[in-house]
């Protein structure tokens, strides 16, 4: 059966409701922070703001701390409540989502470090267009995945899976054009490589956002679609 976003506040034990709500709230807070990290990292590059990039690198520790906190809370709920069915799926989805968010945080700090290098070397704005386009996509994916998590919205989640395919193709074409730059101008190899690392990180962020969306489907429908062919998804999920 499909569950709705208010299902975790209907337990006879109000303490249990509260614990599960806390889990979701903390996950959303972590999501908000990570989303801002990604945005700041990209902006530091586009605005050539190295101090912002430094802050992003520093803030990664806060992201890691949040993941540990959420993991602790999940462990506690598992040990003390032995959750079943939708509750069990929520806890598992939160653990996995926190892990993916932490990895997104890592990617953000990777972007920030590459941005610092590019700014210090004053290597121009080649590739910035691609970065802006892909980062727009990826940020929307992140926002949507968090929203779908908050609302238990599987339709939105399925859109993210499709979106990820678009990001992948954008990434492929960006790679191709950046390769052309490098072949044309050997001096641009170093800065363009930096941009390529950033694009690569953004693409990874997209993959993680995609994972978040898959957890939403697992949470709501009890279906594990991680290794399902995206083309079959609508059919599979629609059945339920």
């Amino acid at each position: 059966m499909d569950i709705t976003s208010d299902i975790h506040s209907q337990h006879i034990s109000r303490q249990f409701n509260h614990e599960l709500e806390e889990l979701k709230t903390h996950l959303m807070a972590m999501g908000g922070l990570v989303e801002k990290q990604v945005q700041d990292a990209v902006n530091s590059l586009l605005d050539a703001d190295s101090s912002l990039a430094e802050r992003v690198v520093d803030n990664d520790r806060a992201v890691n701390d949040m993941q540990i906190k959420i993991d602790d809370e999940c462990t506690r709920v598992l040990a003390r409540r032995q959750p079943a069915a939708s509750d069990l799926r929520l806890v598992l989805a939160v653990i996995r989502a926190a892990s993916d968010l932490e990895r997104i945080g890592d990617e953000a700090s990777k972007i920030a470090r590459n941005a610092i290098e590019l700014i210090e070397n004053d290597s121009g704005s080649r590739g910035f267009v691609e970065v802006r386009i892909i980062s727009e996509h990826v940020r929307r994916m992140m926002r949507d995945s968090l929203t779908s998590f908050a609302r238990f919205d599987t339709d939105l989640a399925l859109q993210i899976v499709e979106e990820d395919q678009k990001v992948d193709s954008e990434y492929q074409s960006a790679m191709r054009s950046l390769m052309t730059f490098m072949m044309e101008d050997a001096r641009s190899i170093s800065p363009v490589l930096g941009i390529m690392w950033i694009l690569r990180a953004l693409e990874r962020v997209g993959d993680h956002a995609n994972n978040l969306a898959e957890y939403v489907v697992y949470l709501v429908k009890g279906l594990d679609i991680r290794h399902t062919n995206p083309d079959d998804l609508d059919e599979e999920v629609g059945d339920r």
Partner: peptide
């Protein structure tokens, strides 16, 4: 039944909901 019950009545019972 314990990870993904089909019916809301089951879900409510095994997860301790009203």
């Amino acid at each position: 039944l314990f990870t993904n019950p089909r019916l809301a009545r089951t879900e409510n019972y095994i997860t301790g909901r009203m």
